[in-house]
Each structure stands twice: as structure tokens, then as C-alpha cells.
């Protein structure tokens, strides 16, 4: 836990004034008369993990396909480390590692041979680097087995390995936890955090799994119908406001009475049934609050923080009904 927190603060430090690795400028895709991605603009900096969030059909995959040159751009541009993917494709894409939708490999070749295939398409990847990446993702055991015998979790890992080979500045992952079990999801999340830190790269992850995004991203970009809805910083989100807390006591009404005199605590709701109070109070005022309650003869059983989950906000931003 402490380790993660330290990593987080390092990340934030690096993100300030760090190099912009990915820049979307009014990125637009039209197919026929339909506009699937509509003037989308945002940035990702070195060391950041940014979530690309949106309900089904929002245009996440389409945007990512444009960023990687798989489909043509109808308008606007994508810059990777300053290079335009339209005008300088090779110079731009060399900084990108990616998994677009599912990680697909040549099933009749081993994991190692598939990585060799990827390595031969780069200028500089050596066998030593391949071994390094295999070790990083824990694929030593599986590397000489044919990919068709791999489980989805192993294929996802091989996908990440393949993406990391050429030391990219930007990792673009379209639903990397797709089809993984809870343990696999957790593992993937830990890998990504570790990689962002150890390889010092920017990561853009698209997902529907909001709680996932919340747990690993420093920022989220929410899109709907191809348009940007909002951009939010995940870690700073709660700092700006007083955290909401839930206090369980023996006599809720008496507690409410006692706290009314205390200006720093706003009691928002009393829940008789659960014998709880919902209030907003800053960290420094909590000791005083507890003293007041004790003096009023109220027994405090439990104090918990209630953060509004990203999921709730997501539903708010995108109008609820649309999400699958």
C-alpha cells in the first residue's frame, strides 16, 4: 500500500511539466454520413495512466484505431511524441506499443517466436530484450508453448510483452482486462502500474470497467457519441472537497443534536435504520468531533469514508441509461 502511494506521488510529480506523449487535435472519423468520432481533443503525458471511458459504441475503439494508423483519419490529427501519425507515420508509430481489442497471435507459433516476429519488425530489439520482457511478464514457463494452447490471460500478457518490446513511450490498450477473471484483472492492473513506473511510459487504457479505471488511472477522459464529455483527475478529485463520512453511533438523534453546535461538521443525513449519520467534515476536525460526541454521551462504533464512486459520476456524465 505504501509502495503504491509512493508510486502515485512520483507519477504526479512526473506528470507536471512532463513531455506530452500523445496529443489528439480535433480527431474526427466519419463513415458515410455518420460521425463516429467528433472533434476529440486531449493529451497524455509521460508517466500518466489515462483512462478512456465511454459507454458501448462511444467511439473508443475507433479513436484508438485512428491513433495507431489502422484506419484513416477524416479530420484533425494525432501527434505522438510530436510526430503526426498522418504525415510521419513511421516516426510516430515507433513510439507506440499497443493491443487493439483482442491480443491476436500466430497460433501455430510459440510465444517466443511470436515475439521474434514483432522484434524483426523493429530496428533495435535484441534477444536479450525479448528475454527481459518475457521475465517482466512472467512468461518464462509458457514461452516455448504454442500460442494456441495459451489461456486468455496468458495471451493478454503476451500482448503486453509484445507492446513493450521496442521500449515505447506510449502504450495504447483497448480493454486489456477483457475476458479476464478477477485475479487476472488485478494482476493486469498491477503490471500496468508497475510498467508505468519502471519503464516510465504513458499509458492510455480504454475500458468499461469503471472501478478498474478508477484504481489505476491518474486521469479519465470520458467520451460519448464520439464527443468529449469530461476530463477528470482521479486522484485529486476528492482532495478539493471535504470527504463525506459515515458515523455509526448508538444514539443517532442525540449525536445529531450534539454536532449541530459544531460549525465545522455538516450533518447531511440521519439514517435511523442503520443508526448512522452522513456528514461532511475535513480530516483536521474529526478529533474535535469525536470529543464532542463523547462528551455528549454518544458511543461511536465506526467511522468510514464514503467516496462517491467513479461509476456514479460516470452514470451522471453519460446520462445513465446508455451504459451497458
Amino acid at each position: 500500500m505504501t509502495l503504491t502511494q509512493r508510486n502515485m506521488s512520483q507519477e504526479t510529480e512526473r506528470a507536471d511539466g512532463a513531455e506530452t506523449v500523445l496529443q489528439l487535435e480535433n480527431l474526427t472519423k466519419r463513415i458515410g454520413r455518420k460521425t463516429i468520432v467528433d472533434h476529440l481533443s486531449f493529451e497524455v503525458k509521460q508517466g500518466e495512466i489515462v483512462g478512456l471511458l465511454g459507454p458501448n459504441g462511444a467511439g473508443k475503439t475507433t479513436a484508438i484505431r485512428m491513433m495507431t494508423g489502422l484506419i484513416r483519419i477524416s479530420g484533425g490529427d494525432v501527434r505522438i511524441a510530436g510526430k503526426s501519425i498522418r504525415a510521419q507515420f513511421k516516426e510516430a508509430i515507433v513510439h507506440v506499443g499497443g493491443i487493439i481489442e483482442n491480443p491476436e497471435f500466430y497460433p501455430y507459433m510459440s510465444g517466443f517466436d511470436n515475439l521474434k516476429q514483432a522484434a524483426r519488425m523493429t530496428d533495435s530489439v535484441t534477444d536479450t530484450r525479448i528475454r527481459e520482457v518475457i521475465a517482466l511478464l512472467g512468461l518464462e514457463e509458457a514461452q516455448y508453448k504454442k500460442v494456441k494452447t495459451y489461456s486468455l490471460g496468458m495471451r493478454q500478457r503476451l500482448g503486453i510483452a509484445q507492446a513493450l518490446l521496442d521500449r515505447p513511450k506510449l502504450l495504447i490498450l483497448d480493454e486489456p482486462t477483457n475476458g479476464l477473471d478477477p485475479a487476472g484483472i488485478r494482476e493486469m492492473r498491477d503490471y500496468l502500474k508497475q510498467i508505468a513506473c519502471s519503464e516510465r511510459i504513458a499509458i492510455l487504457v480504454s475500458s468499461h470497467l469503471l472501478s478498474e479505471i478508477e484504481q489505476m488511472c491518474s486521469r479519465v477522459v470520458v467520451i460519448q457519441n464520439g464527443r468529449l464529455v469530461t476530463e477528470q483527475s482521479v486522484r485529486h478529485r476528492t482532495d478539493s472537497q471535504q470527504p463525506a463520512i459515515r458515523i455509526r453511533v448508538d444514539k443517532p438523534e442525540q449525536a445529531q443534536e450534539a454536532l449541530r453546535t459544531l460549525g465545522q461538521v455538516q450533518v447531511q443525513e440521519v439514517r435511523e435504520a442503520e443508526s448512522e449519520l452522513l456528514c461532511r467534515v475535513s480530516d483536521t476536525d474529526i478529533p474535535g468531533m469525536i470529543d464532542t460526541l463523547r462528551l455528549a454521551g454518544v458511543a461511536v462504533y465506526r467511522i468510514t469514508e464514503t467516496t462517491k464512486s467513479l461509476e456514479d459520476e460516470f452514470l451522471q456524465w453519460t446520462g445513465g441509461s446508455q451504459i451497458a
Binding site: G69, K90, E91, M121
Partner: peptide, 14 residues
């Protein structure tokens, strides 16, 4: 059909 085309095209080769 294998889906490996993506693997092939997102490299620094034209």
C-alpha cells in the same frame, strides 16, 4: 481472419 493484421500494421513499417 486471424486478427494478426493489427499486430502487423502498428509497427514502424509501411
Amino acid at each position: 481472419s486471424q486478427g494478426t493484421i493489427k499486430f502487423l500494421l502498428i509497427r514502424s513499417r509501411s
